[in-house]
Design a protein around this nucleic acid. Structure first.
Lengths: 252, 252
DNA sequence: CACTAGATCTCGTGT
DNA sequence: ACACGAGGTCTAGTG
């Protein structure tokens, strides 16, 4: 991996490093005392303090404080980022046309300026999503109940897409709404709105909320609407690998 | 500001720097070739590549690739983070009890290891929110229309809270739903559900969607429901500062 | 390009 | 601690 990192560069040197990193499509990392202005979808200003700045080759621009997971200010991928000097101070800015917005960082003192050109072709593999749950039920409908048979997935209604539409062993229509996390009242209302689309239907339609758990409020609302809850956790197995879980929490 | 930054430290030295940074409640920044495992709310693995790691004193732990705004893996604030050596390789892990989850990074090669102890007491000031719009209308109801008078804010209904409930100059009830960004069909449906709460009401109730703009679909749905749209942008003025906008997009 | 729906959403607020 | 709603949400997928 190629990289360059300097401590306490002066304004001119700091500019050179950042400018070079940007032009080389490197990941630029700066730790500096700075002020930040944002204007676009909203508007914000942040008085001086020490922060970590990062510009990625795809145009992502992040400003991190020493707290919180999220950046305090940022600019999304495809922003045009550049460095410039104004009134003797280094600025880094990121601009976007659609929507029009601009992030400007005025650097008063650079502690470290660096850039990195690395190799990273790998993408994240992950499981435990709502989509994984739906896949699982399509493959093993009995997880819902014996005799359940899915008829369609992503069934379109005026109120949105139904995750799974199917019939129980008696032929009664079933609407399944999946949540991969604890379900709240919104999930129940969403399911209710799907059922409303079958109002003109003569026969009774079963509404089933499928989730690992649900809030007390959601449970009450579910009862009120005469709908059902089916406890089901999203699958956590990678394809062709079932033994990672075993010792993962016992490292060292 | 106090900081320490070393290039190409070996495993032992890298461990010392990270461990020292963590114990001093510093912001730890590492650029390294690494593999990443996550298990908890979901599960993921990421094969080897060059990434930027950051651990903040509040327990936030981020792993950034060279693309996308979001970290590819992370652990939220209040995680317990530590460094350890296993099979001759440095690991950095973050664990949480509730919900139970763990992020583990196996570092194969450290390019830069550093930590920073800075000053940053300032919080972000920002404007342009939905709440700012509502404030503005409560103070200047005529922005909606001449004669409009708000009666309650955050009025509770079975279908959620109405942003502003009021009456027009003829005494007709008005339900106002605010969006600070372009409004879609969901906003219209939400407003419709509020109006449904007044079904038993004998008199007509006006539903008004207040937003800077709306999508074509939202406009059609609004007409169908016989509701109205009022164009209004969220206020973008900081308290006691009205001149920032003027030259903000003309730097250099 | 616009719109939809999910997310290890995060983060603040209220209970 | 939990539930809920907003966000400059971001991000992937679809039309």
């Amino acid at each position: 991996m190629k990289f360059l990192s300097e401590k306490n560069p002066d304004t001119k040197r700091s500019y050179e490093i950042v400018d070079e990193g940007l032009s080389k499509k490197a990941v630029v990392v700066i730790v500096a005392r700075c002020e930040v202005l944002y204007e676009g979808r909203a508007r914000s200003r942040l008085a001086a303090g020490d922060r970590m700045l990062m510009v990625k080759p795809d145009g992502s621009f992040l400003v991190h404080q020493d707290r919180n997971l999220d950046p305090v200010n940022w600019q999304p991928p495809k922003s045009k980022c550049r460095a410039y000097i104004k009134n003797g101070l280094l600025h880094v800015e990121g601009v976007r046309r659609n929507p029009p917005e601009r992030l400007d960082v005025e650097i008063q003192n650079t502690h470290v300026a660096s850039y990195f050109i690395g190799e990273d072709s790998k993408d994240l593999e992950q499981v435990g999503y709502e989509a994984d749950m739906v896949d699982m039920v399509v493959e093993s409908p009995d997880l819902i109940e014996k005799g359940f048979r899915p008829t369609s997935r992503e069934y379109a209604t005026p109120n949105g897409f139904i995750d799974i539409l199917g019939k129980d062993k008696n032929g009664t229509l079933m609407v399944l709404e999946f949540k991969s996390r604890r379900a709240g009242t919104n999930a129940v209302k969403q399911l209710k709105r799907y059922l409303d689309c079958f109002e003109d239907h003569k026969e009774f339609v079963r509404g089933v909320l499928v989730a690992p758990s649900l809030t007390e409020e959601a449970s009450e609302l579910l009862n009120k609407y005469e709908m059902e809850f089916k406890e089901l956790k999203p699958p956590m197995e990678f394809d062709g690998d079932k033994n990672l879980t075993l010792d993962f929490f016992s490292a060292t």
